[in-house]
Amino acid sequence: MRPRGRSERTIWLMLAAAGVGLLAVPFTGMSIYLMSVAFVVMFHAAAAVSWNILGGYAGYESFGHSAFIGVGAYTTALLLSHQGLSPLLTAPVGALLAAAVAVAVGYPCLRLRGPYFALVTLVVSLAVSVVVVNLPGLNVASGVFVSRPAASPVMSRFILYEAMAVILIVAVAVARAVERSRFGVALAAIREDEEVAATQGVPTTRFKLVAFVVSAALTGLAGGIFSWSRGFLDPGDMFSVNLSVLIVLFALFGGRRSWVGPLLGALVVTLAREFLFIVIGEDAAQILFGVLLVVVILFMPNGLIAAAPRLLRNGARR
């Protein structure tokens, strides 16, 4: 899907410019509230883009990615509340721990495909949740206090925004690098037909595992900064199944072939939900959202990105 007439370097420069732009937005005098909304959007986008490395590129749709969010989230939260270490330092540790969990469960889980993989990842996320919440001595079950990033509210929101923006940029960069590499081509081959790929010499098991681990690490990184914004972590918060499913929806909605889909999906869906919630209230918003899901699946099964050209073309014709 290489755009005609543009070199790789130009694309990377454009993306870098967009990244800088993203980092610069708060300096235009963004309100605290908008920074909070943007923070959540970027978190969702980062999680979705990371998920997609395994779910979209390799075709292994995980329904348990909140496990990695939770691992990252609690790593930074506990290190902050027990040792006073800033999540800016410890988020990478969260990423590493999430990666470790992926290594531990990846090999067995990746032996399954399709719905079985989806469900085993769901169950794994439940198991991880039980383990983390009940780790001896850490009192996770009684709740964890997460102190604010800075004394001033504006500074707090600013730090959170910038940290998550950096993570989003990293996630997109990694995802794109994977897309453009031979590793990415191999993943696509696995997605299309894993048996054939194997006979062609692709080390499917190893590559799937790498995709799983990278996806998990990036998600853990995002989770590590996300918990910093919560103030108080109630045990079920960071491991919710809802979050796992939502991430899948972002990618499904936006499209899974490249990093753009999940990012767009996260953006549109998160903002739409927020907006609907404010304007028509939770119940009506959920009904609308449910209907939207049905409509999208029936009429845009490959996501907004794939359908957009067709929609735009049809729109232009009228």
Binding site: V245, L249, I287, G290, L293, V296, I297
Partner: peptide, 8 residues
């Protein structure tokens, strides 16, 4: 996803 929408 479809049935999830219905469930919601």
């Amino acid at each position: 996803v479809l049935t999830l929408g219905v469930a919601l």
